[in-house]
């Protein structure tokens, strides 16, 4: 079965992906070495690594990197912890597990853009329910989106509200697939619930947990829609993540060369991370039969 021409089945996909993913990347690579702008796309002067150097000297680039890392670190760690405990909670119910599971995964099915707009309304300082609640309950005038750090936290909260459900769902199904025997054995040995969680359950679901974390890291790194619609990157640059910064470089400052250099860097980082993930977690797919 080895040498009959299986590769021909792959050709349409490879051509299509080559056209929509590989060719654009090569194009980006080319643009990143030129002084290309919206008015001079194809004949920009060749500047070598000029765009990359100007990027590394750009304080806004480092700013957006800092914002992105903070955003990713905060949202992913909160989601992982919350999602894990939610999975434990639902898993320990005697009945209606499925119902609770379904109700808890609804948030992640909503378009991130729509979720962002909903929170824009919730956060509104005049008639948004969250500031209104603080006003009537504690008599505090809560301004959420015009203080830099608070605005970033507000974005993290949107992410947490939407994507904790992802961590929950995957952890929960990993829990369901665990063998029962180790837990029964630990119970007979007299281990308390939390001891069983710590010494039996955690080591068993660790591989699944790492996969979940990688997906969350990558996806939260991509975040654009919600932030774009709620704050547009502001106040100042307080919520301008790398995705937003790249977008602004491209479509408000029209500095195509520099924007392309940034996307090349981002893609390189992603490829390195994917490579690690691939080796570790997708071995079954990649194993040559």
């Amino acid at each position: 079965m080895r040498n009959d021409r299986g590769w021909r089945f792959v050709i349409p996909s490879v051509i299509l992906l080559g056209f929509v993913a590989l060719f654009p990347f090569i194009f980006s690579l080319y643009i990143s070495f030129t002084e290309s702008t919206a008015y001079n796309i194809y004949h920009g002067k060749f500047v070598g690594l000029g765009n990359y150097i100007s990027l590394f000297k750009d304080i806004k680039f480092w700013d957006s990197l800092r914002v992105t890392l903070l955003y990713v670190a905060l949202s992913v760690s909160i989601e992982m912890i919350l999602g894990f405990f939610l999975a434990l909670l639902v898993d320990s119910l005697d009945r209606y597990q499925r119902l609770f599971m379904i109700l808890l995964i609804i948030p992640m099915m909503i378009a991130p853009l729509v979720y962002g707009i909903i929170f824009k309304l919730l956060y509104n300082s005049i008639y948004g329910p969250i500031p209104l609640f603080f006003r009537s309950a504690f008599n505090i005038e809560l301004q959420i989106l015009n203080k830099p750090f608070r605005a970033l936290l507000a974005m993290v909260i949107v992410d947490v509200f939407q994507w904790t459900s992802f961590v929950f769902l995957i952890t929960y199904s990993a829990l369901q697939a665990l063998p029962k025997e180790p837990f029964e054995a630990a119970m007979i040995d007299g281990a308390t619930y939390w001891k069983r969680v710590r010494y039996v359950l955690l080591p068993l679901i660790r591989p699944a947990f790492v996969v979940i974390m990688i997906f969350r890291l990558m996806d939260s790194f991509k975040t654009f829609d919600q932030i774009f619609v709620i704050t547009g990157g502001g106040p100042g640059t307080a919520t301008t993540t790398l995705s937003l910064y790249t977008y602004f470089l491209m479509f408000t400052r029209y500095n195509f060369g520099k924007a392309a250099a940034l996307t090349v860097i981002i893609l390189m980082v992603v490829i390195v991370i994917t490579n690690l993930v691939f080796k570790r977690f997708f071995r079954e797919v990649s194993a040559v039969e």
Partner: peptide, 11 residues
């Protein structure tokens, strides 16, 4: 895994 912004400009 790549962010969509990577493909945005060339596409």
């Amino acid at each position: 895994m790549a962010p969509p912004v990577v493909f945005a400009l060339p596409l």
